[in-house]
């Protein structure tokens, strides 16, 4: 469904991605783990067209998307819930969710999807009129995830959905993410919580200073001694 072939990308003279290749099958959950600054966020931003790709190719459902504008890539079916949540602070929860469906023209269906998101995260349903910026961090993360889901992506890029959240909220968020595959949504999950991410994922990649250094099934990686040493805190 998604093929990333040997892409290079960066900011000015800095090359943040140095020949990254990976693939994601339909409905698959793939984790990307790596240290801070390894290029995880840049990788997702490059797939979404926010960070320009200098060389290499990204294909989605067989179609090259390299060089398309971010909004065009969203329209093809790639959703992206960015790092730091980036909900719209001075729009209401409802408006945030409706913006998630900005590319859709089927308003009645979209309303149903918004109701469904409120079913997944009841707290959002009770705060529809509140400004996004007044929500707690955990609620904002639920909103960010919900906003991405209202766009009905076939592939969802999730950047650090558990960062800085209380364990109970993290459990709730991961539970929803685990349910996405069942609904046929493929997921690329970038996480600093490597243990939880590898448990959830069918496959994973390790990104180090702009290169993929390891890849394998979730269980393989979770048992690999290099991963355990570097990312699972078991020296």
């Amino acid at each position: 469904m998604l093929e990333v072939e040997n892409i290079e990308a960066g900011y000015g003279p800095i090359r943040a991605l140095d020949g990254v290749s990976l693939h994601v099958a339909a409905g698959e959950l793939v984790a990307i783990i790596g240290a801070n600054g390894a290029g995880k966020t840049t990788l997702l931003m490059a797939i979404s067209g926010v960070v320009p790709i200098r060389s290499g190719q990204v294909r989605f459902e067989g179609r090259p998307v390299t060089g398309l504008a971010p909004h065009e890539i969203v329209r093809l079916g790639i959703g992206h819930s960015p790092e730091g949540r980036r909900i719209f602070p001075r729009l209401s929860v409802r408006e945030n969710l409706e913006l998630g469906g900005f590319t859709r023209s089927d308003r009645a269906e979209m309303r149903r999807d918004i109701d469904e998101v409120c079913g997944l995260f009841p707290v959002l349903g009770s705060r529809m009129g509140q400004m996004g910026g007044t929500l707690s961090g955990g609620e904002q993360q639920m909103l960010a995830l919900g906003r991405a889901l209202v766009g009905r992506p076939r592939l969802l890029l999730l950047d650090e959905p558990s960062l800085g959240l209380a364990p109970l909220v993290v459990a709730k968020i991961f539970e929803v993410i685990a349910g996405l595959s069942a609904r046929g949504i493929a997921v690329v999950l970038v996480e600093q919580n490597a243990r939880a991410a590898l448990k959830l994922a069918s496959r994973g990649y390790v990104l180090e200073t702009g290169r993929i250094t390891l890849s394998g099934s979730g269980t393989e990686l979770a048992h690999d001694h290099r991963v355990r040493d570097a990312y699972l805190g078991e020296g």
């Binding site: 979404s48 926010v50 504008a69 971010p70 909004h71 969203v74 329209r75 959703g79 992206h80 960015p82 980036r86 909900i87 719209f88 913006l99 998630g100 900005f102 590319t103 906003r147 991405a148 766009g151």
Partner: peptide, 10 residues
């Protein structure tokens, strides 16, 4: 950026 990521042509 967040607007572009929900499909808004900025």
């Amino acid at each position: 950026t967040a607007a572009a990521l929900v499909g808004v042509d900025v």
